[in-house]
């Protein structure tokens, strides 16, 4: 880890030095991430507003209860926990890459960047499976007195309130906002993960080519790291809003 020793009584605003003691590139990455935080915040708050405004919302433990190769076993929270731990772990390997960069250890940076890229790809694979499962997995829905088979899409929500039909409890169509918000927000996050993986691959190649050794510092790895940690940070809130509550 790093610490900065600042002499007491330093006059930051007297001119002649940056009042933030941080490079321009890192400042701009932070401000970009802050604006991105407002974008994601607005999406999630909009989702919360719609969810508060309707009498019935899909129960996440009911919707997200599947696991690859587990058939129809009822495993609420299991798969999304796996995705969460994959992303936390790839965040750790990213911060270790930044640490190796501080020590100017090229081999260490290469190793941890590679692990971070693998973590990102694993997360994207999980998301692809989850989306496929939701879109193609159909459920009985009572539509105008007739049973239909619906998957979960941006126009169809088979997770509405249940009613009695021919002696059995059957779901009715739920608010279509469910699919729109779920696929919209996890998709926007997934696209951030994808961009992060691309950025990390570029950084990995530049490390391998020795560009950062020539430059004398690994600050690009720090900037890519800020973006990657932000992706993990957003997932923490997506996990809260869509799966836990």
């Amino acid at each position: 880890m790093s610490t900065t020793t600042i002499p007491a009584g330093t006059k930051w605003w007297s001119g002649g030095k940056s009042p933030f003691n941080i490079s321009y590139g890192k400042v701009m990455m932070w401000y970009f991430l802050m604006s991105d935080a407002f974008t994601f915040g607005a999406f999630l708050i909009s989702y919360g507003t719609i969810r508060f405004s309707v009498n019935h919302w899909a129960d996440p433990n009911h919707v997200f209860n599947a696991f690859p190769f587990a058939g129809h076993a009822n495993l609420p929270l299991a798969f999304v926990s796996l995705m969460t731990f994959i992303l936390i772990f790839s965040s750790v390997t990213m911060v270790l890459a930044v640490h190796e960069g501080h020590q100017m250890n090229r081999k260490g940076v290469e190793k941890y960047m590679l692990l971070t890229i693998i973590g990102g790809l694993a997360f994207l694979g999980c998301q692809a499976w989850e989306w496929t499962h939701l879109i193609t997995g159909t459920h009985d829905v009572l539509v105008n007195g007739k049973l239909e088979q619906w998957g979960t899409t941006v126009t169809k929500n088979p997770w509405g309130p249940e009613v009695l039909h021919n002696g059995q409890m059957v779901a009715t169509p739920g608010p279509i906002a469910f699919g729109g918000y779920f696929f919209g927000i996890t998709g926007f996050h997934g696209f951030h993960v994808f961009s992060g993986v691309v950025i990390n691959i570029v950084m990995y190649i530049k490390t391998k080519l020795g560009h950062f050794d020539q430059r004398g510092h690994y600050e690009m790895i720090e900037k890519a790291g800020l973006y990657w940690h932000f992706v993990d940070l957003v997932w923490v809130f997506v996990f809260l809003c869509f799966y836990l509550v």
Partner: peptide, 16 residues
């Protein structure tokens, strides 16, 4: 060797 860069924006170098 630890990285060192001559960046005028960073007045006080962090200890890594």
């Amino acid at each position: 060797s630890a990285q060192h860069f001559d960046n005028p924006e960073v007045t006080f170098q962090p200890d890594h």
